[in-house]
Amino acid sequence: MVKSGINVRLGRRAFLALAVMLIAIATSGTCAQPPAGMEIPENLPKLEGPVAITTIGQAPGAMQIGLLLKQLGVTNYVDTEENPLSADQLVGKGYKVLILHMGTSLKGMGAAGVDLNSEIARCNALVAEARKQKMFIIGAQIEGLKRRTDDSDERSNKAVTAVSDLLLIRAEIDHDKYFTNIAKDKKIPLIRTKEALDFRYALAVLFGKN
């Protein structure tokens, strides 16, 4: 079967390419140069774990960041939909960094059982506790345009950017310079990446794993 042969070759090639990528991910080291399209500001803070991560709006981005941090060897805790991170969960765990991911669940607020008002109240309570504990707060958005579609996403963005010490986002969601302008106004660093996987490089730089 000729076409089978073609497919086998393509499959193996794809698999080899994937294997190379996986090896790159699995190792804690990163490339010397930033990935294409990434802008790394100077004078970034040197951060260390453990890290607590949640999404204000219950989108899955928090978990994606958690996976990348895990691969970098940075201890982290990602909350779940059933048990979203609360202020009292920040107490006594020694967290040094709080990552607030922006974006609301696309299954719809009702279907996902998410109420954005309560999510923003949770965000404010988390920030109040994090400040008490002198935690560094990163506002992140790894999922791109899929989480910048409606008013709910904008409210999540607004709530998180207002309290962040650093913004780490996909460049495509900054098409209107919303995040650039906020970073300028607040005089906080902004890291923009082209792809979700590029977050690994940015996180490696921030957590001294490069």
């Binding site: 994937l18 899955p60 994606q64 939909e81 299954k107 279907a111 996902a112 999922e143 996987l197």
Partner: peptide, 28 residues
């Protein structure tokens, strides 16, 4: 299965085409 889906989503989006990821809502 969220870990597997999250990695699959990131790998596909970086290497081939845009493919997001959603949690299955627990209440639906």
């Amino acid at each position: 299965a969220a870990d597997v889906a999250a990695m699959a989503s990131m790998m596909l989006s970086a290497g081939e085409f845009n493919m997001g990821m959603e949690f299955s809502p627990t209440l639906l």
